[in-house]
Design a protein around this nucleic acid. Structure first.
Lengths: 212, 212
DNA sequence: AATATACCCGACTATTTAGTCGGGGTCAAG
DNA sequence: CTTGACCCCGACTAAATAGTCGGGTATATT
């Protein structure tokens, strides 16, 4: 049962979410005050108190920038609770303590949206082995519109999706996609080539590595 | 190329990471000072300055709790950059602006570790339909050891992994797993049953919903 | 011997940030 | 027409937090 929430309270919650997602840490009352376009920080405090009473957020008294969004808050927003969620686990007294054991069973899954613009997918093929991205690795892809030469990108060429290195030069052929494996060929830009996003990070053997 | 980092600097970085992951927001200098067991906050400032020079973290001057870990920092830690990463994108001037278009191509992927104890997997079967978890949905599972009655859990029964509701009562049969679909049967606890983790959230139609 | 680097100390100040007080206006429900 | 919920105002105080200053020690390098 999702608790009722007023328009204004939802506005505040959405502003809070946006701030955290875009900066990596929560805002001050003052910053929220500006975004809500009110002139007193007391107004913000009042609204926050209501969200807290409804268990959508949690504050730590007299600590700067310590507002966190609780699971219920993410539910109202319809957003994944991944980022700050781990910190915001609402306390629950365990009735029972049970040992867990064994290895994780690998189940099948498809590409998944993790945040607004971030996707997780699995690499198939060996066209990027020289960049340390191998068949079966998982990569984190961020959907974006601007790219720099050298970015590893997820590209759609016709109907096919692929991961290549994007190169932009000031002489012909100007723009092309370079596989990091000599056995594959360069793909030049035509109207069939669209860049979907940038590969941010690779998961291999349980370790994440950044893509420069 | 991972920049060289001293033991002490790595200690600081690890403390920073732990704090952010467990609270949802960055620590103050004072809190880091305590964790590093030094008596002057200047010591912390010095170390932070070095991490910042090496582009492992980023600070915002004169803002409380505004330290974020940069991609390079996550690489040194070997941790996924999911949570605070989106906020900590290091600036990069775009050489080229290219429109992206089209829908996301669905590629195949397997279960993936997102954080230390958080996994993403896809549900197969209809045993939880009454709990709003359907075949093909993706769920976020947190590996943990303590559960409360009513939790939706990922359980391993013999060789098989399944998602059920965990029930603990003070009268026989005490402990059992209850499918949220009357067409399946209750599973009583034996030594073959181990609980792997708790289902935190479900992804359905691009929207995340919390599991109570 | 001189220089640099990494790490640290303690007292202090400046600024940011949370919190308090005592109100007001509107709107819908009883 | 009173009550309560919701949202808001402005001036203020208290506390948390970042930042500054002027040092020190040890270790390795030139």
């Amino acid at each position: 049962m999702v608790s009722s929430i007023t328009e204004r309270q939802k506005e505040l919650l959405e502003n809070l979410y946006r701030y955290i997602i875009s900066t990596g840490y929560p805002p001050t009352f003052e910053e929220l005050r500006e975004q809500l376009n009110v002139s007193s920080n007391q107004s913000v405090i009042d609204l926050l108190a209501k969200l807290e009473k409804k268990k959508l957020i949690k504050r730590n008294e007299s600590q700067a920038r310590s507002i966190t969004i609780l699971p219920l808050g993410y539910e109202v927003l319809g957003k994944p609770p991944i980022a700050p969620f781990l910190g915001a686990t609402s306390a629950g007294v365990p009735l029972q303590a049970i040992e867990i054991s064994g290895e994780w069973q690998i189940l099948s899954s498809q590409v998944a949206m993790l945040q607004d613009n971030v996707f997780l997918l699995q690499i198939s093929g060996d066209s990027m082995i020289n960049a340390g991205i191998d068949d079966g690795d998982k990569v984190l892809v961020k959907s974006q519109k601007e790219f720099v030469s050298g970015d590893v990108v997820l590209a759609k060429v016709g109907d096919e999706s692929m991961v290549k290195r994007f190169i932009s030069e000031d002489k012909p052929p100007y723009l092309y996609l370079k596989p990091e494996n000599p056995k594959y060929e360069i793909i030049y830009f035509t109207e069939d080539v669209v860049l979907e996003g940038k590969v941010i990070s690779v998961l291999k053997n349980g370790q994440w590595r950044m893509i420069s």
